Simulated assay, not measured.
Amino acid sequence: MDILKKALPVHTVDGENAALKRIMPTHNLSYVDPFLMMDHFSLDQRAGFPDHPHRGFEIITYMLEGAFKHADSAGNEGIIQAGGLQRITAGRGIVHSEFPAFEGINSGIQLWINLERRLKGMEPSYQDVKREEIPERESDGIRVRTLVGEGSPVRIVQSMVYYDIAISQGKKGLFPIPGGFQPLIYILEGTGSFGGNRFPGTAGEVLIPERAAENGGLSVVAEEDLRFVLIAGQPIGERPVFRGSFVD
């Protein structure tokens, strides 16, 4: 599997004074089917996301540091701690809010995953998953957390995998991706070379590999200690229509 291109996130402000790195959609990267939006946020308690609606997709919020508290108009509320995540199926529509739960920095990644048009009217639902519930394996300088995929309790409509991967300097890994899935890589820390074409990548960059072949996989070599998230999903093939926080 080769890397086709790279893109840089765009610094922007959303919600209430919430400065973040928007990975997509931007002028650099519109969307990567089935993934619609991806943000890397890092907020203190002066910022957040007051009540706002969503419709037509699913959301995974994965906390890297600190915690986020959420609440919705149906009376659901909770706190996502570092290392844990929340899955929301917005379906026919929800209204919710998200704010940092701790003093200091509260950082994480929010990913929007498209739903097929025939499923956009489904009933909304939530799932909170604690850090200790997420499968993690470590061997020979490589640590993989499976946020979505084999062994993970996360229930999501669209076929996909989602990994948080750390590789020690000088180590090499090969990470299987189901055939036909479209991958995306976002580098959190360090530098490395990715794919069969040894494409260079460094912290803050987004890499877009080619679609996975049957029995394919992504090879990665860490030039220095490296951490990245790898997502891959089965493309839907329906062009999304963005209407702010609604996607038709």
Results as ranks from 00 to 15, higher is better:
Ser168Asn: 15
Leu8Ala: 09
Gly84Val: 12
Leu226Trp: 14
Ile113Asn: 07
Glu223Tyr: 15
Gly217Leu: 02
Gly75Ser: 04
Gly66Arg: 03
Arg46Phe: 06
Pro176Tyr: 01
Arg118Ala: 12
Phe99Leu: 13
His40Ile: 11
Leu188Arg: 00
Ile23His: 01
Ile231Glu: 09
Val241Cys: 09
Pro209Asn: 06
Gly204Lys: 09
Glu77Thr: 09
Val220Trp: 00
Gln169Pro: 02
Tyr186His: 05
Gln182Ile: 03
Met1Pro: 10
His40Tyr: 13
Phe228Thr: 00
Ile88Asp: 08
Pro53Leu: 04
Leu64Asn: 12
Gln169Asp: 02
Leu85Val: 12
Ile185Cys: 12
Gly190Arg: 07
Leu8Gly: 11
Asp33Glu: 09
Ile59Lys: 07
Glu210Lys: 13
His11Gly: 08
Arg239Phe: 06
Gln110Arg: 01
Ala212Asp: 12
Leu230Trp: 11
Ile231Asn: 05
Tyr163Lys: 13
Ile231Asp: 03
Gln158His: 12
Ala213Gly: 15
Gly204Tyr: 09
Glu16Trp: 04
Glu116Cys: 08
Phe49Tyr: 09
Leu111His: 03
Gly48Phe: 00
Leu218Ser: 04
Pro25Arg: 03
Ile113Lys: 03
Ile105Ala: 08
Glu205Phe: 08
Gly237Asn: 10
Thr12Gln: 02
Ile177Leu: 12
Asp39Arg: 01
Val148Ile: 13
Arg137Asp: 08
Phe228Tyr: 12
Asp39Glu: 03
Phe228Trp: 11
Phe99Asn: 15
Glu103Thr: 15
Ala47Thr: 00
His11Trp: 07
Tyr126Lys: 02
Pro183Cys: 06
Ile109Trp: 07
